[in-house]
């Protein structure tokens, strides 16, 4: 997964998020993780551990303060993946 694109990351995230939420909604890059998908803080932290394993990266929890939407999360993962 050396040259994964931002779009591919967003697509993978949308698929993964569907398993993390009880809310039946179409997940798009603009979807808000908390207000639309009702992902609580603990679920979000568990999701991050799965993402770390899937992309073989470290995602510091302190980097999540600006993450509101699926796109924000995808951007963060892409940034970390690109610099690793």
């Amino acid at each position: 997964m050396s040259k994964i694109t931002q779009t591919q990351i967003t697509g993978l995230l949308c698929q993964r998020l569907a398993c993390f939420t009880d809310v039946e909604a179409e997940i798009s890059p603009e979807t808000n993780l908390i207000t639309h998908l009702a992902i609580d803080s603990v679920k979000l932290l568990n999701l991050i551990m799965e993402i770390e394993d899937q992309f073989d990266i470290s995602v510091p929890l302190n980097a999540l303060v600006d993450v509101l939407t699926v796109q924000d999360l995808a951007n963060l993962i892409y940034k970390i993946k690109s610099s690793s």
């Binding site: 470290s58 510091p60 929890l61 302190n62 980097a63």
Partner: peptide, 10 residues
């Protein structure tokens, strides 16, 4: 951890 400013990983 938050107060430290360090990168926090679980």
């Amino acid at each position: 951890c938050i107060l430290s400013g360090a990168d926090v990983i679980r």
